[in-house]
Every structure is written in C-alpha cells, then in structure tokens.
Amino acid sequence: MRFKATISNIATFTKLTASLNSLGPLAWLKLSEEHVCFTIIPEQGTQVWAVLTIDSIFSTYMTQSAANNTINLEVPLGPLNRALKSALHATSAQIRLTKKADNMPILALTIVNPPSSTTSAIPNLSTEDDEYGSFYDDDSSAGGNRETVITQEVPIRVLAPDTVAGLHEPQCREPDVHIILPPLMQLKSISDRFTKLALAEAAGGNSKATRLEMAANMHGCLRLSIKTDAMRISSVWTDLQNPELDPEQVLGGEVGLAEHPSTRMKLLGSADGRSEEGWAAVRIDGKDWGKVMSVGRLGGRVIACFCHEHALILYVYLPSDSEEDESVLTYYVSSYSA
C-alpha cells in the first residue's frame, strides 16, 4: 500500500488535529480516493466523525491499496499535531506512509524550511523501499543560507478493513430543533465561565454540578444555563437562524417535511425566548463541552441539531469556496438524564 501527499493547508491541518486531540488521543484515519476521514470514538464523551475534502488540506494526493485504494490507520493525534506545528513556517511539506528499519509503520512528514529557519525536528535518514512506498530524507541544514529538509516521524498502526467494518456513525432520530450557533469561541467563553463557577460545588462531591443545559427553539433562540443547589444562571441568544430543510433531503419529501418534528416546533414558542414552549433541551458535561468548542478555532458555520433529552449533534462546516463539496465535522454529544 502507498500513501503520499503534499500538504497545502498546514494551518488548518494543525488546528484540526489540535481540536480532535482534546477529545481523544487516538483517531481512525481513513484515506480514500474521495475523502480524508478522521473518527474518534472514546469510551466516554463525544464522538467525532470528520469528512474532509482532499483539497481542503492537500494539493497532490495519492493512495493505493488492494482494498479499493483505501487505507485505514490508527493515528496518535498528539504526535501528529506536534509534527504539523513544526511545519507551520515551512516552504513545503509532504506526508507519506512508510516503514522504519524494524518494520514499524510510520507517517513521515518531510518539511522544507526556508534559510535561517530555527524550527527543530528529529531527522531520519532512510532510503528504504517497501510495501509502504519509498522514503528518503535529506538533511541539508549545513550552511545558514540553505534550505533545511527535516523529517518528523509519527508511529501509527495499519488497520485491516475487517477491523473497522463494524464502525458506523450513531443513529439518531429526526431533530426537534436545528439552529445555527453563534461563534463557537464566544459560546466556549461563556460555557467555561459557567463551568468554573460550578467547580467548587463539584469538588464537594456533586458530580452533576458541572452539567450544563443547552436548549433552543425554532424561532432563533438559544439558551445556555447551569443549575445547582447554590445558583441558577443562564445566557440567551436571540435572532439566530433556523436553516430551512430541503424537502428532497427529508424522508417523504413535502409530506415528510410537513410532519417533521421541527415543523411542529415552529408552531410553539416565540422569538423573544420568553415562552417556555417549543424548546428542545439537552444536558451535557461542561468540561467535555469546552473541549468540543475548541473546534471554533477553525472558523466556519455550525448547525446544532437538538433531539430533546436525547442527543445534540453538531455539524461543523469548514470554510470553503464551494458549498457543494464542503468538509464537515460531525459531533455526537449524548444528553444526561435529569
């Protein structure tokens, strides 16, 4: 099998891996001819299923394998993120799948830095040509006026197709409310503030103290609140957008849209947020939610789908010139019971 690509958007790739790393140390990386997919399925907490267009990160891209040119890898996100950070000021960067002398598979990130660059890295000299493809690293650091070529190695594990065949995105019912969230970094700031206010009570043995309640209605209102024995505080956003559903994307077409839960919720509540009717709510862990919100550093719009008292699903669309072929990160956040 072979994989080799030129990274064209190092900043986005670095921010993406940093955000994913906050939710779990390992990711399933699926490389195919159509997309690059990152999946995180922790034992507890939020699941992430990210589908990225190839040109959102790479310029040249090649993947070959006996399994329909699809390669599945288990990748440690921390080392990958650190390797990408060392390439932030590079003139070019390539990544490829190869092996070390002891047959350990690695992702090798070859970085070309401009003259006088002080970026540090761990060089690796190798001329092996194996089932993972050839790899060569030339450390040309001698002389202050020359480019330096360095290589970062990220140990990975190659996964057989059967190993990942049973992994699928969670199944959720149709959402009761869907709404475009305000800027995530703004939402994260308030969420973190609420969580910190409750930490003292959590330290006293109340494991529910840092649980936030998020609620939204179909009139552009979003509410974030926290309730404990000692306090009850909330923030409300109004004039947000509830995107219209496309009948072609709804089971049953126009008839299905008319019977959709969100259509019924439009008949309830009000745009000023004062009515208690028409709200769909979920209860989430404040610390886990703060990690989810770190994806806000990537920008882009975020649509939140509320399945009342069941789950919150976030669709994070990365900035793109084309709306027809966008990269999207999907977050599945389960709701705690009352």
Rank of each mutant, 00 (worst) to 15 (best):
L16D: 14
T228W: 12
N113H: 13
W289I: 09
L23V: 01
I40E: 11
L26W: 06
E213G: 08
P42H: 00
S225W: 00
A5D: 04
A311Y: 04
Y317Q: 12
L88N: 08
L88G: 01
S262Y: 07
R297A: 14
S140N: 09
D288L: 08
T39K: 15
Q94I: 06
N103S: 13
D138I: 08
P76E: 03
T210S: 09
P261Q: 12
T39S: 15
D325E: 13
P123T: 10
V292H: 02
T148F: 03
L107N: 12
V328W: 00
T263H: 15
A50D: 07
L181S: 12
G299F: 11
L184W: 14
E34Q: 13
S275F: 13
T163H: 11
D246H: 01
A18E: 14
I284M: 14
E277Y: 07
A121M: 11
K287D: 14
I41A: 03
T12A: 13
I233K: 07
R274L: 14
R223L: 12
E201F: 04
V75Q: 00
V48F: 03
D138Q: 12
D321R: 06
E34K: 14
R297G: 02
I190N: 05
E244C: 01
S320Q: 07
E33F: 00
Q241H: 10
R297I: 12
V333A: 04
M231A: 11
L251F: 08
T119W: 02
F3L: 10
L257N: 12
R283W: 10
A215P: 01
I313V: 15
T163G: 01
Y132C: 13
T14A: 07
S134Y: 11
N69E: 13
P319L: 09
S134W: 09
V158G: 00
L240E: 05
F135S: 08
A271T: 10
L329M: 11
H260A: 01
L88W: 09
V282P: 09
L212N: 00
I54T: 03
R301L: 01
V158I: 13
L52D: 08
L23P: 03
W49C: 00
N113M: 04
L267T: 10
E248R: 06
I57E: 07
H168P: 01
I156E: 00
G278K: 10
S275V: 11
G290C: 08
A108P: 13
Y332R: 01
I284P: 10
